[in-house]
Design a protein around this nucleic acid. Structure first.
Length: 396
DNA sequence: ATAGGGTTAG
């Protein structure tokens, strides 16, 4: 790096510091107005606030419209943080409404108990369903399994599987088995998860793309790439209808293991099978070359993406803009920034700022200014870009 | 309706 750029950096540092002070002087509340985004500290509600949330929720629950919107329950859970007795309080309150005999409604509550890490309450509500005049099918059984996963109680799921279907005469379906597999994967028992395939086939249930997707992904996560290979072959043998998603999982695995040729091959295979690669597929290919510092190929895949009518998204722009900056390819960096604004795609503020800075560093002041102004016209996000050159001129 | 798959910078 040249000495002029290090001078620039020092000036910029000074500038940034001064700027913060100015912000503080101009406002009465300096706590959250810093340019570097500081999240407001989320504190636990005190007793008074807690009671208000509970009372308001119960009041709102009187409206059937309110009860029909799951988002209201999710919001309440979030606001109540980990206060399980408060959550139990508002959920118990729901039992007086007719929806409590609706399997979907109760299932949502069971799932939310899981989200709140209250697996015992989830189980209790499941057990109460007959008393609540609510039918209980494999659907709510699956939901109970999922609630345990959300509560990270993986070991219970095996037991539930052994105990409940027989007791309640529920036939586990493909979703039940896929959920069991997910639980075993999360618990780190990949081998037993795989053996569930045999188990389900013995019960006459065909593993599907979700089954294979979950397992393939776990192979990749535990870096067992050659086993992932065998597993992919097994999937072909089982004639599982592949889709975009499972190809994405496979492609991600190949990229993670730096199997460049195999990744290209798979990409082409997708086209032949009429699984049209989407932006995510292209991003994977671009990322592979960006990580490899191969500018030519990264750019080639970007061009290919645009030519094939896939819209570059935030990930595409951020990856390539930084790479272009690394390579001092200012024209391309600027072009990408303009295109992102033009196509209504938001990138990180720091990414856009880096291009402004690097343009200024290379005395391309007009272009830097142009970009800052262009960013001002962007409606979906308010970029906060600084024009360092103004300040440098002032210092000189 | 419940189960999976998703990135990008510092």
């Amino acid at each position: 790096m040249s000495s002029s750029s290090s001078l620039y950096r020092r000036l910029h540092g000074l500038f940034a510091q001064n700027h913060k002070v100015t912000v503080k002087l101009n406002t009465d509340k300096p706590k959250t107005t810093s340019l570097t985004s500081t999240k407001p500290t989320s504190k636990l509600p005190d007793e008074q606030e807690l009671q208000t949330i509970i009372d308001n929720f119960k009041k709102s629950s009187e409206s059937p419209k309110f009860r029909n919107r799951i988002i209201n329950y999710r919001t309440a859970i979030r606001r109540l943080k980990n206060n399980s007795s408060a959550i139990q309080d508002i959920f118990e309150h729901q039992k007086q409404y007719p929806e409590i005999s609706n399997e979907l409604f109760v299932s949502r509550l069971i799932l939310l108990y899981g989200t709140a890490k209250m697996h015992e309450h989830a189980r209790k509500l499941f057990d109460e369903m007959p008393t609540l005049k609510c039918k209980r099918t494999v659907f709510s059984f699956n939901v109970l399994l999922e609630a345990c996963i959300r509560a990270e109680k993986y070991d219970i799921i095996r037991e539930l599987f052994r105990e409940l279907p027989e007791e309640l005469s529920i036939e586990p379906d493909v979703v039940s088995y896929n959920t069991l597999i997910k639980a075993l994967c999360k618990a780190g028992s990949l081998d037993s998860a795989v053996s569930v395939i045999d188990e389900m086939e013995n019960q006459g249930i065909k593993p599907d793309k979700v089954t294979f997707s979950t397992l393939l992904n776990t192979y990749h996560e535990s870096k067992k790439f050659s086993e992932a290979e065998d597993f992919w072959v097994l999937m072909q043998k089982k004639n599982v209808a592949a889709d975009m998603g499972i190809y994405s999982v496979r492609l991600r695995g190949l990229v993670a293991n730096n199997q460049v040729n195999e990744a290209i091959e798979l990409f082409e295979e997708m086209g032949k099978k009429e699984i049209i690669p989407n932006a995510f597929s292209y991003n994977l290919m671009i990322k592979m070359y960006v990580d490899d510092r191969n500018w030519e190929e990264a750019k080639r895949w970007y061009v290919k993406m645009v030519e094939n009518g896939r819209y570059p998204d935030s990930a595409t722009f951020v990856m390539l803009i930084h790479f272009a900056c690394d390579k001092d390819n200012l024209d391309f960096a600027l072009e990408l920034c303009k295109k992102s604004i033009d196509s209504n795609v938001t990138v990180h503020n720091a990414t856009m700022q880096r291009v402004v800075n690097i343009l200024a560093e290379h005395s391309k002041l007009e272009e830097a200014k142009e970009l800052v102004n262009l960013a001002k016209s962007y409606k979906r996000f308010r970029y906060k870009l600084l024009l360092p050159w103004l300040h440098m001129r002032f210092m000189w």
